[in-house]
């Protein structure tokens, strides 16, 4: 069975920390950071390795701050 591995790049400075993406992630890969960005928002980040590149987080992100990558392994 072909497996996929995904990853994301977040435009941290544009993230407003709304957390809408967190619920949308089926593998619970993302979480809010303890730190804040220049605007004072906690931003979302990858916390472990389970990303499948499903794009859910990016699709639901109101600010379009997430770029999703995926490769077959």
């Amino acid at each position: 069975m072909a497996k996929v591995k995904g990853d994301i790049i977040v435009d941290i400075e544009k993230c407003k920390g709304c957390e809408v993406c967190i619920d949308a992630c089926p593998t619970h890969t993302i979480a809010m950071s303890e730190q804040v960005n220049g605007k004072g928002y906690h931003f979302m980040q990858n916390v472990h390795d389970a990303c499948t590149g499903c794009t859910n987080c990016a699709i639901v992100c109101p600010d379009g701050v997430i770029t999703v990558y995926r490769i077959k392994v």
């Binding site: 790049i9 544009k14 590149g53 794009t55 600010d63 997430i66 999703v68 990558y69």
Partner: peptide, 29 residues
């Protein structure tokens, strides 16, 4: 993994790079 050919989703160029004026989590964006 972070190679252009592996991008499966990115913001369309038809959205400008201006920071949206909407509140966090607003559906307008």
């Amino acid at each position: 993994i972070f190679k252009p050919e592996n991008i499966v989703y990115k913001k369309t160029d038809l959205m400008t790079d201006n920071v949206l004026s909407y509140c966090p989590g607003c559906g307008h964006g």
